[in-house]
């Protein structure tokens, strides 16, 4: 899916995180030779069209020099706007940087990224945290990581990553974190079939690697402990510049709301959430109303 991407949709609210994502987007556009759409959904009650358009025209100004770039301005609810636009572009990769870190608690905050990851049938690229000034995103992807959290999530994202790694000549790194063994580990086996020992995990990943025909170079990395602490270490030690995860492990479902998994908060690489295969057969019951305007 990713290697066939011919269109990148960069949804922006002009935040620092969006600016920080520009080098990565530029690299994607160049690597995939694809079309770029800069999408902004503004609140018509708070901002005039003229002002919103001026902001959009000045954001990522260098994209005007890209061979295929368009700017799309929509009004309304950002989640609905982005969702509606993406539903009509199934071949796209959605770039959705995180919102700026305020350092203040946000009890009523509903994660836009989590909603998009849950509902959209296209892969979504985001960042674990804002990488302002980092050179990481501008390097070429020679190391591609895939996080396998459990056997239940399937291997669709691993296969896609393998295809992508083959096409780009990257090394594929299979990453897995074995949970700490303690009294609570008894319930772990009730919830998942994920291995509880490092040796078993390595064996499982070796089987997975053997089932991937397309990947050229595969390396296995297993760590034990809390995923939030160990996964960033595994990413660092593997040198992976991009991490592909399944839709299920990308989000954390809470009682009242879902959000992007806090495991990625300390991850310094770009993260691509790959949708479930079943989503690709989603159909739209009626054609959505055209709200956007090519600015």
């Amino acid at each position: 899916m990713l290697q066939h991407t011919r269109h990148i949709i960069f949804a922006t609210n002009f935040s620092d995180a969006c600016h920080a994502a520009i080098p990565a987007v530029a690299r994607w556009v160049d690597m995939l030779q694809c079309k770029l759409t800069l999408l902004h959904v503004y609140n018509a009650d708070r901002l005039l069209y003229r002002d919103a358009n001026a902001l959009l025209q000045s954001f990522f100004a260098e994209a005007d020099n890209y061979p295929q770039c368009q700017r799309v301005l929509m009004s309304g609810d950002p989640a609905e706007g982005i969702s509606e636009f993406c539903q009509r572009h199934r071949d796209a990769l959605l770039v959705l940087p995180p919102s700026d870190q305020t350092g203040l608690p946000r009890p009523w905050h509903r994660s836009l990224r989590a909603r998009m990851i849950q509902t959209l049938p296209i892969p979504i690229w985001t960042l674990g945290r804002t990488l302002v000034g980092s050179a990481l995103a501008a390097n070429s992807d020679r190391h591609l990581g895939v996080w396998l959290s459990s056997p239940e999530e399937g291997l669709a994202h691993v296969r896609q990553a393998a295809q992508y790694a083959t096409q780009t000549g990257s090394t594929l790194h299979l990453l897995h974190v074995v949970p700490d063994v303690n009294e609570g580990s008894l319930t772990h086996t009730l919830r998942t079939q994920a291995p509880l020992g490092e040796e078993y995990a390595e064996e499982w990943l070796t089987q997975v690697a053997a089932s991937l025909d397309s990947a050229q170079r595969v390396e296995i990395h297993v760590g034990q402990g809390k995923a939030r602490r160990v996964l960033p270490k595994l990413i660092r030690s593997s040198g992976a510049e991009l991490l592909m995860v399944s839709q299920n492990s990308a989000i954390e479902r809470g009682l009242f709301r879902s959000e992007v998994s806090s495991i990625f908060r300390e991850c310094c690489s770009g993260i691509v959430s790959v949708p479930l295969a079943a989503h690709s057969s989603l159909t739209i019951s009626s054609p959505p109303a055209v709200l956007e305007e090519v600015a």
Partner: peptide, 16 residues
Amino acid sequence: RCHLRKQTPFSEIQSI
């Protein structure tokens, strides 16, 4: 600019 910001310049070179 791209060189200093470690951004790929090739799309822009291609266009210009």
